[in-house]
Design a protein around this nucleic acid. Structure first.
Length: 618
RNA sequence: GCCUCGGUAGCUCAGCCUGGUAGAGCGUGUGCUUGGUAAGCACAAGGCCGCGGGUUCAAACCCCGCCCGAGGCUCCA
């Protein structure tokens, strides 16, 4: 339904001539006049046909809201077809208008309704204040389906257990969590939510202070701006996860970011999910922005010719970007965004045996990722109960790999498209958890999207499908790194990022201007190596420069003065140990290169001399 | 989306209750200082007090609406 709401000094209409669809009305309804009214021009649309009741209720609410804002004294309902290009059937439109009139009257408003389906002359005078002209669109359909999905989910019953590395399955309520604080926090967050902590998550302050990421008020909430240092870290994470996944055997592809709402397979799939999408209008078609690479890869797989010899078959895309129009109140810094970057891999396998093999390998790959970032994490594995019963040893094998107790959630029935998934979660400073790595065994979508392969006997068959995000959202990985750095600082340790992710790995600080030339030589030396070095050539004291470097969490601070210049060595302040070490430039370069080994390397995207470097933020 | 809190210099914040010339620290610029491992000194520039409306002789301050952020609820494919 489309609504155009005008706050008018007066409105007057007179029906002149019937159209084919004219409503039969009493003589006295053919003309009318109202003063100090809210005139509601209404077009009832096709999409309203199945949801008349809800549309009427919502329209009445909108009108009520505006009515009280502008302090009108009566409502005039005026059928106005020209607001929409997709009109409802006239009969239904009349009914909707009548019930809207009834609804408003029931809510205590004085209502005048103009007849439907007549050519009418009308005159009005709009008040012209800021609220005096408003248009509203009321769309019920998707939300209705949405709430159905939500309801079904609410009914889902599940039970929680802890599985120890020794293979013991204990109901979570009976498990003694002492010594497993991380798991306790994770469990409590998953099952009870959190207690009220009313402070800003520390990573939000850190991401700004370190000039990594910031809010962008010029965009939709949940869309962030990335400064050079943040972009560098993001790029390194993206390159590394892509590297891991390609080495594992995935084929990298790229798929569109938007899809046709009306596409039959997509729309059915879409309605299984409660979250909302961004909508893009192109000509008169509506598209939604993808929330993962699923669709693009399904549609691609559907068109592929696949033999059993090709399985397992893996497609991968770094979704730059994925979009989820989260409710505004759910957004939180880098933890929860509306636009984010996520690696998404789908693996086709011929049977459950192969699915489990792949699941295990992807589980290990995710473990490796978490280790490379130095993140502490907790593990949850969620099963449909019957599937768990058949695969106990598999669960035990996974718990053993982790080497500490993990959470198990068992669902009585399968609501989602998967029978099993794992999640690696990190706890943050507010004792909340966020999922990073996850892999799911999907038993539904290959069939839904008609993805087939030809088996040994020449028969077309539907494969099983694994969804994998080895790192989880890239943005969220930075959130985890910052939150855990903050937690370490709270315990009295120095906060830091892994060296391979540190924007500046070596900061060269000359003791005085006399040592600047020597410092420049060192800078030139590191530039030729796989080391991100920069030079503090500002006019400040040594202490001040050290302090600035410490505040930036720089892993190696190289101080060079007359002594170093003569002895051709450098004195390095090592962040991880807090020690001052005398080293040669080669030794330092080798040390950093060792820490960069196997990781992508990107040059510092900023001027090497601090005096040449602008500030992105105070 | 709902509820609560916040938005003042590039940044962090005070001022608002009790309306009357807009403040501090950091950062930035300039000058002095050339300092040996976490803040050297001085001076200066820098403001649509989030936006719109209202009340008032007068609004950063009081009232209403909106926008943005954070937290809670809800939600989290």
């Amino acid at each position: 339904m489309k609504l155009l709401l005008l706050h008018v000094d007066h409105i007057e209409f007179k029906a002149k001539q019937k159209t084919k669809v004219a409503e039969q009305v009493a003589e006295d309804m053919l003309a009318g006049r109202a003063e100090e009214a809210l005139a509601a021009f209404v077009a009832v649309e096709k999409a309203d046909e199945g949801n008349a009741k809800e549309v009427v209720r919502r329209a009445a609410e909108e009108i009520e809201k505006v009515y009280s804002q502008v302090k009108a004294q009566r409502v005039v309902l005026y059928p106005y077809a020209h607001l929409s290009s997709s009109l409802a059937k006239p009969q239904i439109a009349v009914e909707v208008l009548k019930s809207l009139e009834e609804e408003l009257k029931a809510r205590g408003y004085e209502v005048l309704r103009a007849p439907f389906g007549w050519y009418k002359a009308f005159e009005l005078r709009c008040k012209g204040h800021p609220l005096s002209e408003l248009s509203r669109e009321i769309r019920v359909e998707e939300e209705k389906k949405e709430s159905l999905a939500l309801k079904a989910e609410k009914k889902l019953k599940s039970e929680w257990y802890v599985l120890t590395p020794e293979g013991e399955l204990i109901p979570a309520q009976k498990f003694d969590f002492s010594g497993h604080e991380g798991l306790r926090i994770f469990y409590e967050y998953e099952t009870k939510g959190t207690r009220a902590v009313t402070e800003e998550p520390p990573h939000i302050r850190l991401m700004k202070e370190h000039e990594l990421v910031d809010h962008e008020p010029g965009s939709d909430p949940g869309n962030l701006r990335w400064y050079p240092k943040g972009k560098l870290i993001k790029k390194l994470l993206e390159q590394r996860v892509t590297q891991l996944v390609l080495e594992y055997g995935a084929m990298e592809v790229e798929t569109p970011v938007m899809y046709d709402f009306a596409h039959p397979k997509l729309s059915r799939y879409l309605h299984r999910f409660p979250a909302r999408q961004y909508v893009v209008i192109s000509d008169d078609k509506e598209y939604f922005l993808r929330f993962a690479a699923c669709f693009g890869q399904y549609l691609m797989m559907h068109d592929m010719t696949i033999s059993h010899r090709h399985l397992p078959l893996r497609l991968y895309e770094l979704t730059h970007y994925s979009f989820r129009r989260e409710q505004s109140g759910e957004l939180a810094g880098l933890k929860r965004l509306r636009t984010f970057t996520m690696p998404d891999m789908h693996t086709l396998v011929k049977d459950m045996e192969q699915a489990k093999q792949e699941f295990l390998r992807q589980f290990r790959l995710s473990m490796r990722w978490m280790e490379e970032l130095g993140l502490e994490y907790e593990v949850a594995i969620r099963f449909v109960r019957s599937f768990y019963e058949e695969n106990r040893e598999f669960a035990e094998e996974l718990a053993k790999l982790i080497g500490k107790p993990i959470l198990i959630e068992l669902w009585d029935e399968r609501f989602f498209y998967f029978v099993m998934k794992f999640e690696f979660s990190v706890n943050d400073a507010q004792r909340k958890a966020a999922t990073l790595s996850t892999v799911q065994i999907d038993v539904e979508n290959a069939e839904r999207f008609d993805i087939t392969y030809v088996d040994e006997h020449g028969e077309r068959r539907h494969p099983l499908l694994l969804h994998a995000s080895i790192s989880g959202g890239i943005d969220r990985n930075l959130y985890a790194l910052l939150e855990q750095a903050y937690l370490r600082a709270k315990r009295g340790e120095k906060p830091s990022l892994p060296t391979w992710l540190s924007p500046t790995q070596v900061r060269i600080i000359p003791v005085s201007e006399q040592n600047l030339a020597y410092a420049e030589e060192l800078l030139a030396f590191f530039r030729k190596r796989r080391v991100r070095a920069d030079l503090d050539d500002e006019a400040a004291t040594l202490q001040k420069k050290i302090r600035n470097a410490e505040k930036e969490w720089i892993p190696y601070i190289a101080v060079v003065g007359a002594r170093e210049q003569e002895g051709s060595y450098i004195t390095v302040r090592v962040r991880s140990t807090g020690e001052q070490v005398r080293m040669t430039k080669e030794e330092l370069a080798e040390q950093v290169e060792r820490e960069n080994e196997g990781k992508p390397f990107v040059k510092l995207p900023l001027p090497e001399r601090l005096s040449q470097r602008p500030r992105f933020r105070g």
